[in-house]
Amino acid sequence: MQSGELRDEADIEDANCVLAFQFDQTQFCIACAEIAEVVRFKDVTIQSVPRTKTGVLGFFNLRGDVIPVIDFEAMWKTHATTLSDQRRHKRIVVVNVNGIQVGVLISGVLGLVSVDLSKTQPTDDIACSALVYAEGKYFKQLDLAAWL
């Protein structure tokens, strides 16, 4: 948990595992089962797409697949990331939502944590599917299908 540095490809199959990240005092997470791949923001070139919705950064080329990238923070209606912003440990989490691959740009990655499924609670937040418990804290698990 304190490692800070994400193990990029390890343990992703684990059913109880989530990728935890922090944003604006809130801890969020994405289920590992939904994650196809995690790439460093600074490692990819994003081609902007004009006239898209707020929060859509553009596309990038993931080994021959064209993946749209969405800025999580901009979607949360705060400051948007610019393409040249490489200050923080930003990562693009490529998720598979209903057969469509989408990249979600996040920062403040905490790492992979194991969830105690027995303590999962419902949430009112429409962007989240549940509150999951891990390592003494609750995380808001993103409901990607509803959110995208």
């Binding site: 797409v49 004009p50 006239r51 898209t52 919705k53 859509v56 749209p68 969405i70 469509i100 989408v102 995208l148």
Partner: peptide, 9 residues
């Protein structure tokens, strides 16, 4: 959809 109405592309 994710990208919105960019039918020109």
């Amino acid at each position: 959809a994710i990208l919105g109405e960019i039918y020109e592309i």
